[in-house]
C-alpha cells in the first residue's frame, strides 16, 4: 500500500523503546526497558506469566500510557501522535477482542470500514483475507461460535485489514493445535517476506527459535536479548560440545574450554568459546595427548534450557 511505501524513507527501526516503564500504583509492571526492533524482522518477546509482555505491548500500541520513557514506532512518538501511528500497526491482543455477536465477515468488514476502506476496495480486501486465512466457508458464522484456532485466525485477518507495516501479536498461538501453529508461523514468515515487521510474544520455545531476535523478560525487565543462538551462548557462557574418547584426558587442558558440564568417564560435555573454531583444536590437542577421539560434536541446546538458566540467574 501507499503508506507502507512511504515508510521506506523512514528510520531503520520499527520500534524503539527507551526507559519504558509502567507502574500500577506501587507495582512496577514494566521497569525501564529498552527495545530496538528493526524493520522487517521477526522479534520475539518471551517471558513467564506476569513478566510484563502484554503491558509492554499495550504501551507500544498506545492502548495504555507509559509512566516513564517513550516508544517510537517508525520514528513517531506513540504517546504524542498516536493517531498518526495507528495506520502502521496491526494488533492482535492476547484476549480475543472481536465482537462475538457479529459474524466472521462482519468483523473484518467493520474493521476495514473503521480503517477507512470503502466500496470495492473493502470488498476485495475482506475476500482476500477470508481466503488467505481459510475463513471463507465460515464467513457467516458468529465469531462467538468459532473454535479457538479459528478465532485466532480471524483476529490475525482483522489485524491485517489495513495492510499495516508492523504487526504486533500477543500470544497468537495460545490454545492453537500444533499443525495450525506451524501454519501460523508460515504466515508470519510470508508476512516478513512482504517486508512487514512482526513483534510476537509466545510461551512456546520451539516457536521462538523461528524469531530473528528475541528479548527475554522477567519481572518487568529485559534479562537477555539477541538472536536465539546468541541467547543460548550467553546462557551457558559459550557453545556446548560433546566429546567421547578412549584413553585418558584432562578436559581443562584442552583449548578453548571454559567449563565442564558433565564428566562421565570417557565422555565430557564441555562449554567452549566457539564450537566452530574450538572443536578442531580440541581434537588435535587430544590426539597429541594420546587419547583417541570417537565423537566430537556441538550439542543442540534448547531455548528452554537457556531460558531457565537466565531465569535462575535473575532471581
Amino acid at each position: 500500500m501507499l503508506e507502507a511505501r512511504r515508510l521506506e524513507e523512514q528510520p531503520e527501526l520499527a520500534v524503539e523503546a527507551k526507559d519504558l516503564t509502567k507502574r500500577f500504583g506501587k507495582f512496577v509492571a514494566v521497569d525501564h526497558i529498552n527495545l530496538e526492533i528493526r524493520r522487517g524482522e521477526n522479534f520475539g518477546l518471551l517471558g513467564p506469566n506476569g513478566a510484563g509482555k502484554t503491558t509492554t505491548i499495550r504501551m507500544i500500541t498506545g492502548v495504555i500510557k507509559p509512566s516513564e520513557g517513550y516508544v517510537k514506532v517508525f520514528g513517531i512518538d506513540v504517546a504524542k501522535e498516536r493517531k498518526k501511528v495507528l495506520k502502521y500497526i496491526g494488533y492482535m491482543p492476547q484476549k480475543f477482542s472481536l465482537y462475538e455477536d457479529l459474524t466472521v465477515e462482519e468483523n473484518i468488514r467493520l474493521y476495514g470500514r473503521l480503517q477507512g476502506l470503502t466500496g470495492s476496495l473493502l470488498r476485495e480486501r475482506v475476500r482476500e483475507l477470508l481466503e488467505r486465512f481459510y475463513l471463507w466457508e465460515f464467513r457467516r458464522r458468529l465469531a462467538g461460535k468459532l473454535s479457538g484456532g479459528m478465532k485466532q485466525r480471524l483476529a490475525l485477518a482483522t489485524a491485517l485489514v489495513h495492510d499495516p507495516a508492523l504487526l504486533i501479536l500477543d500470544e497468537p498461538t495460545a490454545g492453537v493445535d500444533p499443525p495450525l501453529r506451524r501454519k501460523f508461523w508460515e504466515h508470519f514468515r510470508e508476512l516478513n517476506k512482504e517486508g512487514k515487521t512482526i513483534l510476537v510474544t509466545t510461551h512456546y520455545m520451539d516457536e521462538a527459535e523461528n524469531c530473528d531476535r528475541l528479548a527475554l523478560m522477567n519481572r518487568g525487565r529485559i534479562i537477555a536479548e539477541g538472536t536465539p543462538r546468541e541467547i543460548k551462548r550467553r546462557a551457558l557462557g559459550g557453545d556446548l560440545v560433546e566429546i567421547v574418547f578412549e584413553g585418558h584426558l584432562d578436559p581443562t587442558a584442552l583449548p578453548g574450554v571454559k567449563s565442564v558440564l558433565e564428566d562421565s568417564r570417557e565422555r565430557y560435555l564441555l562449554i567452549v568459546e566457539d564450537a566452530g573454531k574450538d572443536l578442531p583444536r580440541i581434537v588435535k590437542k587430544a590426539e597429541e595427548l594420546g587419547a583417541k577421539i570417537l565423537v566430537a560434536s556441538p550439542v543442540h541446546v534448547s531455548l528452554e534450557e537457556a531460558f531457565i538458566r537466565f531465569m535462575g540467574e535473575s532471581e
Binding site: V63, K95, S97, Y99, Y111, T158
Partner: peptide, 13 residues
C-alpha cells in the same frame, strides 16, 4: 467487560 475496546481503539475512531 469483553475487552472489545482494545481492538476498537486501534482504529482511527
Amino acid at each position: 467487560e469483553k475487552g472489545t475496546f482494545e481492538q476498537f481503539i486501534m482504529t482511527p475512531v
